[in-house]
Design a protein around this nucleic acid. Structure first.
Length: 591
RNA sequence: UGCUCGAUGGUGUAAUGGUAGCACAAGCGACUCUGACUCGCUUUGUCUAGGUUCGAGUCCUAGUCGGGCAGCCA
């Protein structure tokens, strides 16, 4: 396992036995949208560190802003995380008993504390099976968080402020000019406590008052200029119900949620570097009895030709450029999954790019290589003709059927085979034929020979066209002495192509996906909608070999010489499969 | 002219004062019943200027360039 600066820090902490209870990380999405490939890096980092150190990674919903959140997202995010982690780090997945709230506990030193315990790893499988396990929710900590807020008030470290949002902004100053203190900054502890309780009781309208940390309005770091801790929102919460009208803000809730869960390493992206002093300030202001979590930041993943901005992804959905959040062209985890990309390939990619503090754009080719490499090992080979052209083997009788043995996966140590039927009428790929071949063309051309893979060598005798000049069929002779097992089987011809029997194949819809954008950095574009790839989806009616009729969703296939394909989870029906192209094969010939 | 993080081939990264390495990409070749896979070879790099040192990608100083930050979003 290659190391990185975060893992180095963790390794050092382990060496100095800094966290005797073990390493605990967390993946804390807000349930306000779908997870995308960028989140995959965070998931693999957090779960990766947990599994490498015999620790735990809690799945926690950072759901402190009910106005933007919904259970639809908690469900999709949960499914996405489980998919990515399945069979890799599920044994260190931190979940809690359904409905559990943090418990009031007493430390070994006899000090009161709160703790949100995870289900022990040994009990996790059965808890998961019976659905008695669920993710952690920051909203489950609202009562504890409220208690900590009163503590801050009593310590004189927080105050209720009556400034309006506009006034608050004005008092905050600017990046280069210090702010000025709120006129409410010096209220007494008693008044603050009374006001904060009345805020909770619902006496004031939205935005009328807020709870603020009393830090330093002249701090060069703007996040330290008396940041807001609580705001008033008369709105029900998707998880906590309708018992609250004051909701904590991110900076206040996050560090304390980490603390409550016993998180040791709180790993987030670079844009939170400026928040770290506040993270530490809140925890240190509270005089907490256990070891405090620490925040570490890394650069997020930005793959080329891809957008990860929630706003822009939403625009693609709204503008109907894609069919939805799980469109196979979307960089969402649900889109990648529907596209047929194995979780293991995604993991390999996001782990392989490494962890640094340098913002960069990762070449999509690295991802594509990971997918191809994975699928090359695991996917069974099949024959499918995407754009069929009819070919007649004139020396085969109309009812003649020649059985051929095809290898399912040549990469396997013990390859299995299947039967393929060769008949008088077959289909080949129209691009495997050229009436006027370009230089170095190995495929079928007038008077030329080519091998039908696993069947034998054919020679093109005649091109049949209709009145309009369109080619309707190619008439060939089949060299029976080149069949498998015959003496001529090893005869060399330059080209080998795939094919399907007309009578032993079926027609099906196949969707060919390509990158969604035409430029490496669509996010840098003034109008990203202008660089959408108009050819990102091409739908064809293909001819597939019979065995492709009853595939399952878990199957991954290589259509030989074409690419890797999987069943579409949404639009496939029994007897009417729809295949998605996960990725094409590498093509170094290219026209 | 605020604070903060950063800079190694085309791209992503490694080297923790001691031979600048790996992967992807690209190019050439071999092999091939997939123009895939595999194998071999090749091209390309430490932001700049000083300094410390026997020795600097690494440490110091100054610069240059780039990212992030002023939601009652996360």
């Amino acid at each position: 396992m290659p190391s990185d600066f975060v893992r180095d820090i963790v390794a050092q902490h382990i060496a100095e036995r800094r966290y005797p209870e073990g390493i605990v990380t967390r993946f804390p999405p807000e349930p306000n949208g779908y997870l995308h490939i960028g989140h995959a890096k965070s998931i693999c980092l957090n779960f990766g560190i947990a599994r490498e150190n015999n620790g735990r990674c809690n799945l926690r919903f950072d759901d402190t802003n009910p106005a933007k959140e919904d259970v639809e997202y908690v469900n999709s995010i949960t499914a996405d995380v489980l998919w990515l982690v399945e069979g890799w780090a599920d044994h260190c997945l931190g979940l809690k008993p359904r409905g559990a709230l943090p418990a009031a506990v007493t430390t070994a030193e006899g000090r009161p504390d709160h703790y949100a315990a995870a289900i022990p790893a040994s009990d996790l499988p059965s808890a998961r099976a019976t659905s008695s396990a669920e993710a952690f929710f920051a909203s489950d900590y609202f009562e504890a968080l409220y208690g900590y807020a009163e503590q801050l008030i009593r310590k004189g470290r927080a105050y209720v402020c009556d400034l309006t949002p506009a006034e608050t902004e004005e008092y905050r100053g600017s990046l280069e000019k210090p702010g000025r203190p709120s006129p409410y900054r010096e209220r007494s502890v008693e008044e603050n406590l009374d006001l904060f309780r009345r805020m909770r009781a619902g006496e004031f309208p939205d935005g009328a008052r807020s709870l603020r940390a009393k830090i330093d309005m002249a701090a060069p770091n703007v996040w330290l200029r008396d940041p807001l801790l609580y705001r008033i929102r008369h709105i029900a919460h998707h998880h906590a119900g309708d018992g609250w009208c004051v909701y904590p803000l991110y900076d206040y809730a996050h560090c304390l949620s980490d603390y409550l869960e016993g998180v040791t390493h709180s790993i987030c992206t670079l844009e939170f570097v400026d928040h770290r002093p506040l993270y530490d300030w809140i925890l240190e202001a509270l005089d907490l009895p256990r070891a405090l979590p620490r925040q570490y930041e890394f650069a997020k993943l930005v793959p080329g030709y891809t957008l990860v901005s929630k706003r822009k992804l939403l625009a693609l959905v709204n503008e109907k450029i894609v069919s939805g959040w799980d469109d196979p062209r979307m960089p969402t985890l649900s889109g990648l999954r529907r596209r047929g990309i194995p979780a293991s390939a995604l993991r390999r990619f996001v782990i392989g790019v490494g962890v640094t503090k340098f913002n960069s754009v990762t070449d999509l080719a690295v991802f594509e290589h990971a997918i191809r490499d994975e699928l090359n090992q695991t996917a069974e080979r099949r024959f499918a003709v995407l754009r069929p052209i009819k070919l007649v083997l004139t020396n085969l009788a109309p009812d003649e059927v020649l059985e051929c043995r095809a290898t399912n996966n040549p990469q396997s140590e013990t390859p299995t085979t299947r039967a393929l039927a060769l008949t008088r009428e077959v289909y080949i790929e129209s691009e495997d034929f050229a009436e006027v071949p370009p230089p170095k063309y190995f495929r079928l051309k007038p008077g030329g020979e080519v091998r039908l893979k696993y069947a034998g060598i054919i020679k093109l005798d005649e091109i049949v066209k209709d009145a309009s000049g369109t080619i309707t069929e190619l008439r060939c002779t089949f060299d029976r002495t080149s069949r498998q097992g015959e003496p001529g089987a090893d005869r060399k011809v330059k080209g080998t192509i795939h094919w399907v029997s007309a009578s032993h194949s079926f027609e099906a819809e196949v969707r060919l996906y390509d990158r969604l954008f035409t430029v490496p950095e669509p996010a840098a574009e003034e109008d990203f909608l202008k660089v959408v790839n108009p050819h990102s989806l091409e739908t064809v009616r293909a001819r597939l070999e019979r065995s492709l009729a009853d595939a399952t969703l878990a199957d991954r296939f290589q259509f030989e010489r074409v690419g890797y394909f999987a069943l579409d989870a949404k639009d496939s029906a029994p007897g009417r499969p729809v295949y998605n192209r996960t990725i094409s094969l590498k093509d170094t010939w290219a026209k």
